[in-house]
Design a protein around this nucleic acid. Structure first.
Length: 956
RNA sequence: GGGCGGCUAGCUCAGUUGGUUAGAGCGCUACGUUCACACCGUAGAGGUCACAAGUUCGAGUCUUGUGUCGCCCACCA
């Protein structure tokens, strides 16, 4: 349905119906979540406020002389915005024809062509119907020069071209030369005719049009002459503009199209009311009858197409409201240049500044029927007397309303006389004033304002402007605007300039431009394409925190994100990939269970049967990451809570304690085990990383840091280790305190990304451990969302502790690795020994219980003099050797294979290091520390290689 | 046509100021359900970092060019 089918009132009614449907859905979902919302009140408040602010702004601009009436070409989507039926619009995308027409020459003041001059000018067009709006035919002002220029360009191309393309290009050059020889005299003759202002007969219309000179005519194409239709073609429009700027012949512009896509009263009667497509047929037929159709040529043509209807766009000339941008744009540029508004990432500053620097006036009118209507009433006048009476009337209207500040009256005159238009603008809706104006013959403008006009006011209009509300005073300017890059110019720039204009103050301090989510094919998700995911479906399937965390995880600085979409079969829960084909279908059959289900389209254009089908959700597997993570967190939290039942807070003020950053106290330092100090160090480091990442809008970095820490360090190591300590009475209390504290901090850090989960655990944690904290045990906030953001406890950050712990992890990894490679059954106990220095022994010996619980391995010996058992699998590590006794599983062949593989790898590494170090350039030019590092590495790896070779030798 | 960005494992993406043998999740392979978690655990396989030239002792990282995909703007950045 188009607006013409319905009429304005019905259309608006329909839109409200659609809105109401959406609201109902949202409301019911809010209810399910237990939320309440006075939606009606909110909606009307916002709508009223918005309308008021729009009118106020427009009035200010109008009174400030920043609004004017101008002309521009509007790209008209004939299919979507007009009443013509589907078969009356052009659908061909690239196939088309060139029609060659002859326009008779009637010379200067009708005396006909001079002897030797052509009697006809031939033009070619892909859109014959537009000839009814022609206002000139153009020929190049200097065809010889134009030919030379094209030839020169072609020659440059030939030089740069590959040999394959060369032949073709050279052929083109030859043709061009031949054409030049043949056509130049004729074109120069036409140019001379244009200079003496020769007129042509425009067939079918009875009008005469001038032959003019303009660079748009291309001597190398067609006949070298081009018809000019300024009201329906962008390039012709430019020709018109140039002709106005030049002295001499100024051509006109005739719009031949109604807004419903039919021809208007500016064409001869027989064509009026025809659609453009029908008019084309008629024009061609009539030209043929008049014997002015020279030939028809098949051609591939490029036309601008509407993104939505896929039909070609019909440009047409329209009178429009413009807002002058010079001062406004300047103010918005300054705000960013001098840093009052900071754009993140910074490269988008360029987009913003470049666009504004053009200071192109903003056409604010739109030929739609929904939106804020332009609050201007107009009345045409002819002659001075009418003009004077209109001025008198305007005073009367003012009087009728009673306050003159709220109306603004201006007039514009036609360029050529005393006729013109009077404009009345009302500041606020004034039924009496408007009625008075209408009774005097004023008509309200039919256009509505660009949607970005009201959007530009968003930061202050939503806070009640133009009233000076407390909200406005408190919240304006806001802190950060978060948006997508494709509306930096449309929205961000305009919000800044509107804010500065209305409020005299920027609307926000920072603008964060986030990446954009695309579908699996790299296309922008959109409702009309049907390739989106419904966040509500994602929440239904994966959970709200999973969605939120998943999005944060994807929010990297540079990249757009591809999100392959799948339908979830409501019957068997299989996932069916969304394809370009199935994404617009109202019903789909499941690949797996072969049962049909409905999609989001079932409601809009499915049959009743489709609508009755259960709906398949549109989701993406990429949110599994978030779901798994949340699940992991939940289970780890459950474990912690279970084991904190007899938790006792630490007592403050003990003498033998480590003093923390803020002077508070915890447990004795000597009570803390290596793993505690490792965890606290990591926790402090990660807190710093997350805080910094969030401060800089690096959401993915924050999410990744938390994911890695929570899963690989907190769960996989600390929680695993703490299990063993809970079994030992005297170790339990300290472990509990550290665990409670770590979980507490982790929840605070996670809260921005997993608010529901962290809040739930926070509440449960408060039950078992109401008083917690490292430095000064205290009762935390009653909700995590108001809990203080964790500070970085730098006192715990200890790189040497982390390095020591890494040693433990490496040995653990080596033992596990050997177990797997030797196919030792998981529950089979093994024994191992480690050759290492005395310091490492001190470090690792206390960890023996963990080797048992986490790798099923018992240590038999530690120290520098350890020798491998008779039948063992060995692994060289940095400064250590791990030997696992595998007498029960010994397989000499397999062990040899493993060692040989290891040897080859190490040998390769040694070679590459050797090569580097024997390169004199490297040794002399690289920084000393880098060279030293490489040397140390080489020594280390050589040692490892030797031990592998020794183990191999022993096997023999 | 101009501007911006992407191209790294089968897929989706990280990769700081150039410096060890380039990482993660999913998927894949093998093994494992007994004490938080199979939405799990342990281990493993998998990469000519789009291509070409250059700078450098050394390039995924810097420079230039080419290809390709995407977005924005298009008489003008």
């Amino acid at each position: 349905l188009t607006r013409h089918d319905l009429g304005r009132e019905k259309l608006v009614e329909r839109i409200w119906e659609w809105k109401a449907q959406y609201e109902k859905r949202i409301l019911s979902q809010l209810k399910q979540l237990g939320a309440s919302c006075d939606w009606q009140r909110l909606r009307f408040t916002l709508d009223d406020q918005c309308a008021r602010a729009v009118r106020e702004t427009f009035f200010k601009l109008f009174a400030d002389n920043k609004v004017y009436r101008g002309k521009r070409l509007v790209n008209w989507d004939t299919f979507l915005q007009t009443a013509v039926s589907d078969d009356e619009v052009f659908h061909e995308a690239t196939k088309g024809h060139f029609w060659h027409f002859n326009y008779p020459v009637i010379g200067v003041s009708g005396e006909g062509p001079k002897p030797g001059e052509p009697t006809h000018v031939t033009i070619a067009t892909t859109r014959p119907e537009t000839m009814l709006g022609d206002t000139a035919v153009a020929v190049h002002p200097d065809p010889a020069k134009a030919f030379d220029k094209v030839s020169a360009e072609l020659r440059e191309k030939i030089i740069a071209a590959s040999s394959k393309e060369k032949g073709e290009l050279e052929e083109q050059a030859t043709l061009l030369l031949a054409r030049r020889a043949k056509m130049l005299p004729q074109l120069e003759k036409l140019r001379d005719m244009a200079l003496r202002q020769v007129q042509l007969q425009l067939p079918l219309t009875g009008r005469t049009i001038p032959l003019i000179c303009d660079e748009w005519a291309k001597p190398e194409l067609g006949s070298g002459c081009v018809k000019i239709t300024p009201a329906h073609d962008e390039n012709d429009y430019q020709v018109w503009q140039r002709s106005l700027a030049r002295k001499g012949v100024a051509i006109g512009a005739i719009n031949i199209m109604n807004t419903d896509g039919t021809l208007n009263e500016n064409v001869p009667e027989k064509y009026r009311g025809l659609s453009m497509k029908k008019a084309r047929e008629a024009v061609i037929a009539d030209m043929e009858v008049a014997e002015l159709l020279v030939e028809t040529e098949d051609r591939e043509i490029e036309l601008a197409h509407s993104d939505r209807s896929k039909t070609p766009i019909e440009p047409y000339l329209a009178d429009q409201w413009f807002v002058k941008m010079d001062e406004l744009a300047e103010s918005a540029m300054d705000a960013v240049s001098d840093g009052r508004v900071k754009i993140v990432p910074e490269r988008y500053k360029k987009t913003y500044l470049d666009w504004l620097s053009e200071k192109r006036d903003w056409p604010v009118g739109r030929q739609l029927w929904w939106g804020h209507r332009v609050p201007v009433w107009t009345k045409r006048f002819e002659g001075l007397s009418q003009r004077d009476s209109i001025i008198a009337e305007s005073t009367r209207i003012d009087d009728a309303i009673g306050y003159g500040d709220d109306t603004c009256f201006t007039m514009s005159h036609d360029p050529d006389g005393t006729d013109g238009v009077a404009y009345l603008c009302f500041r606020v809706a004034q039924p009496e004033g408007e009625a008075e104006a209408e009774s005097l013959g004023y008509i309200q403008d039919d256009e509505v304002l660009d949607t970005w006009f009201s959007s530009a006011l968003w930061p202050h209009s939503t806070l009640g402007w133009p009233e000076q509300t407390p909200e406005l005073a408190h919240f304006y300017p806001t802190s950060t605007l978060i948006t997508s890059r494709d509306i930096i110019t449309l929205w961000v720039a305009r919000m800044v300039l509107a804010g500065l204009y209305n409020m005299n103050e920027i609307p926000f301090h920072e603008v964060f431009i986030h990446p954009k989510i695309l579908d699996g094919y790299g296309e922008t998700m959109s409702k009309s394409k049907g390739n989106g995911v419904d966040p509500l479906d994602v929440i239904e399937k994966f959970g709200a925190d999973s969605l939120r965390f998943g999005i944060a995880y994807l929010c990297t600085e540079t990249q757009d994100v591809r999100l392959p979409v799948e339908f979830e079969c409501p019957h068997c829960h299989a996932l069916i990939p969304q394809t370009k084909k199935n994404r617009t279908l109202p019903r789909i059959e499941c690949d797996k269970c072969k049962q049909p289900f409905g999609t989001q389209w079932a409601l809009s254009y499915g049959t009743a049967e489709d609508q009755a089908l259960p709906r398949g959700a549109a989701v993406s597997e990429r949110f599994e990451l978030g779901r798994n993570f949340c699940n992991k967190l939940w289970n780890a939290s459950r474990f912690a809570l279970m084991n904190l039942e007899d938790y006792k807070a630490a007592t403050a003020g003990r003498a033998d304690v480590k003093t923390a950053t803020d002077g508070g106290v915890f447990v004795a330092e000597k009570e803390l085990l290596l793993e505690d100090r490792w965890l606290l160090s990591r926790l402090a480091t990660v807190t710093g990383e997350v805080t910094e990442a969030l401060d800089q809008y690096r959401f993915a970095d924050a999410a990744r840091a938390l994911y890695g820490f929570a899963w690989d360090e907190f769960c996989s190591f600390y929680v695993e280790m703490v299990k063993a300590r809970f079994a030992v009475a005297e170790q339990k209390a300290v472990a509990q305190r550290v665990l409670a504290h770590a979980l507490d901090t982790l929840l605070r850090l996670l809260h921005p990304m997993t608010p529901f989960l962290s809040e739930e655990v926070w509440q449960l944690l408060a039950e078992v451990a109401p008083c917690r904290g490292l430095t000064s045990p205290a009762r935390p906030a009653e909700s995590v969302c108001i809990a203080e953001w964790p500070k970085v406890d730098t006192i715990w950050i200890d790189k040497s502790i982390e390095a020591q712990f890494a040693k433990f992890q490496t040995v653990m990894g080596a033992v596990r690795n050997i177990r797997m490679e030797k196919n030792i059954p998981p529950r089979e106990p093994v024994q191992f020994s480690v050759k290492c220095d005395a310091e490492t022994v001190k470090l690792l010996k206390p960890m023996e219980p963990y080797f048992l619980s986490m790798a099923g391995a018992t240590a038999t010996a530690w120290g520098p003099k350890v020798t491998p058992p008779e039948r063992s699998a060995s692994k060289p590590l940095e400064g250590m050797e791990v030997h696992v006794d595998i007498s029960a599983f010994f397989d000499a062949g397999a062990e040899r294979t493993r060692l040989e593989k290891e040897r080859d790898q190490l040998a390769k590494f040694v070679d590459s290091l050797n090569a580097k170090l024997s390169n004199e350039n490297f040794v002399s030019r690289a920084p000393a520390n880098v060279v030293e590092e490489q040397r140390a590495k080489l020594a280390e790896v050589r040692g490892q290689l030797q031990s592998v070779e020794a183990a191999l030798g022993k096997l023999e």
